[in-house]
Nucleic acid binder design. Structure first.
Length: 381
DNA sequence: ATGTGC
């Protein structure tokens, strides 16, 4: 890493976003507060920056000798996993796929406890291994919209007429349990020597659980689609990474040092497959992890955004694809207009010299949830 | 985000 200020000095703050980026004052204030934490050396904001609980989502923060569990938050290890499928788009029967993909709602039929045991992972949350979860999580079948660099795209198995799968999920119950176990009041974090290392050990288990969870989800989706495929990319965006006595925190920031990165927008928009470029040290080896929220969940439920009368639209996408989501409230919270324009977010990353676009993928079938909630039909307004 | 309420 480059020359960062010494401990006690003000951390360097760098925002990788143009005036086109929709960045709230609350988010930049959170970025300032993050920079003001003890032993913080540098902080980077990405164009998807938006307010989070204890730190802004879309940020990276480098500290010396200290880790801040509350910055990583509850969903430790949450990230994107990208698979290429053997099934060509022309052979997909969409109606059948919509029907069969709903299997993801139930528990995995495999032996979760045995698999976790094999991986040396705790069994406490075996029941949710292989399930997507809530919030912004999804499992999405995607088709190729455009390829800009065929040779690089082929590295991720992206070829014209092909299909891919993008899984966005995390460590389910394990991440929140780890955070609760190592909870610290205030913004001081944990010293790396001692309590900080204990946190990181448990954090690493959640990181591995999250990746395995995405693999099981993908395996179930492939089975539902009666095809096979290959895991090409796994890119976690909520994690702490120890580098000697430094700790790099990523809160909704995609690592740029692990190959190609999928950057999804909303469930009504395309996903960009990008190649990270050699970046200045103050980018903290990070990229935007998605479009980022434009409006918080609560404001999407107020009826002010004129989406309530148009719920049917939200279970389809502008590309003729389907969204499986039987939860009305989640459908409103996750409406495309709740998100920034991913095209602008990626344009900012390009303008900052951080990435090159390799391909654009379009949503064909998105699984969110097939569960029928009891309060179904009762949306607060 | 969350075995998603007490």
């Amino acid at each position: 890493m480059g020359n960062f200020p010494e401990a006690g000095a003000v951390a360097r703050i760098r925002l990788f976003a143009s005036s086109n980026a929709w960045i709230e004052g609350a988010a930049t204030r959170q970025l300032d507060q993050l920079a003001g934490r003890p032993d913080m050396l540098a902080v980077a904001g990405m164009p998807d920056l938006h307010p989070g609980h204890h730190a802004p989502v879309g940020s990276a923060a480098l500290a010396r000798g200290r880790v801040f569990p509350d910055v990583i938050g509850t969903d430790i290890g949450c990230g994107m996993q990208f698979w290429s499928l053997d099934l060509p788009e022309r052979r997909l029967k969409l109606d059948k796929a919509v029907e069969r993909m709903a299997v993801l709602e139930g528990a995995w039929e495999g032996n979760a406890a045995a698999l976790l045991d094999e991986h040396g992972l705790p069994l406490d949350f075996a029941a949710s291994l292989g399930t997507v979860g809530g919030g912004n999580h999804f499992c999405e079948l995607q088709a190729v919209e455009e390829i800009f660099d065929p040779a690089t795209a082929a590295q991720a198995g992206v070829v014209a007429g092909g299909l891919s799968l993008l899984v966005h999920s995390g460590s389910r119950g394990l991440g929140p349990a780890v955070l609760a176990h190592h909870h610290v009041d205030g913004t001081g974090g944990l010293p790396l020597e001692g309590a900080g290392m204990d946190y990181l050990a448990d954090h690493d288990l959640a990181l591995r659980f999250a990746r395995l969870n995405r693999q099981v989800i993908a395996g179930r989706a492939l089975q539902a689609l009666r095809t096979e495929g290959e895991e090409r990319i796994d890119n976690p965006h909520n994690l702490a990474e120890r580098q000697g006595d430094l700790v790099l925190h990523r809160k909704g920031a995609a690592p740029s040092d692990r190959g190609l990165v999928p950057i999804p927008g909303s469930r009504g928009s395309v996903t960009y497959l990008v190649e990270p470029l050699p970046a200045p040290p103050d980018a903290l080896a990070s990229l935007a992890h998605g479009a980022g929220r434009k409006h918080d969940r609560a404001s999407m439920l107020g009826g002010k955004r004129q989406v309530a009368s148009n719920l049917d639209r939200l279970t389809r996408n502008p590309y003729g694809g389907h969204v499986i989501c039987t939860d009305r409230q989640l459908l409103l919270e996750e409406a495309p207009e709740a998100y920034k324009d991913v095209t602008k977010v990626v344009a900012d990353l390009e303008a900052e010299g951080l990435v090159r676009v390799v391909a654009i993928l379009r949503p064909v079938l998105t699984f969110k949830t097939a569960r029928m909630k009891r309060e179904q039909g009762r949306v607060k307004r």
